[in-house]
């Protein structure tokens, strides 16, 4: 039997998984290189959310010292980690976009199928004449 209360209490996971799969699907299914990067971002963001939500402590407040020993804090460590991961993500996106710009300059298109076609043509050019 599915325990609906259990399922619902973990709603954050459902959101994360949905986002993750959406992102992966875009990466795989879309032929446009920019859209692939968008997909990659959605995929990464789902992981960021995952880290942020697991750090939530029920009834906890933001981890800023209040001076009251009874205060319950949320776990600050995942936040810090994700700050790093966001930086990495931004760098990746920037590099990816830069590559797309260069690809557009070199191939004249950013559609995967067209690029593959051009590459195949190049390949058969360099192939030794048997």
């Amino acid at each position: 039997m599915i325990d609906f209360a259990q399922v619902l209490s973990h709603y954050n996971y459902w959101v994360i998984i949905t986002l993750m799969m959406t992102g992966l699907y875009i990466i795989v299914a879309r032929g446009n290189l920019i859209k692939k990067i968008v997909g990659l971002n959605i995929f990464q963001v789902s992981v960021f959310l995952f880290y942020i939500t697991i750090s939530k402590v029920a009834g906890g407040t933001a981890p800023i010292l209040t001076g009251d020993p009874d205060t319950v804090y949320s776990n600050p460590l995942p936040h810090v980690l994700i700050l790093t991961a966001i930086v990495v993500g931004v760098a990746t996106t920037a590099l990816g976009l830069a590559l797309v710009v260069r690809i557009k300059e070199a191939f004249g298109t950013i559609e995967e199928d067209d690029i593959l076609e051009i590459e195949h043509a190049l390949e058969s050019e360099t192939e030794p004449q048997a």
Partner: peptide, 12 residues
């Protein structure tokens, strides 16, 4: 120029 696409694929 295929280095660009291979780098892109690797990045993904």
């Amino acid at each position: 120029k295929r280095a660009l696409t291979s780098a892109y694929t690797y990045l993904m």
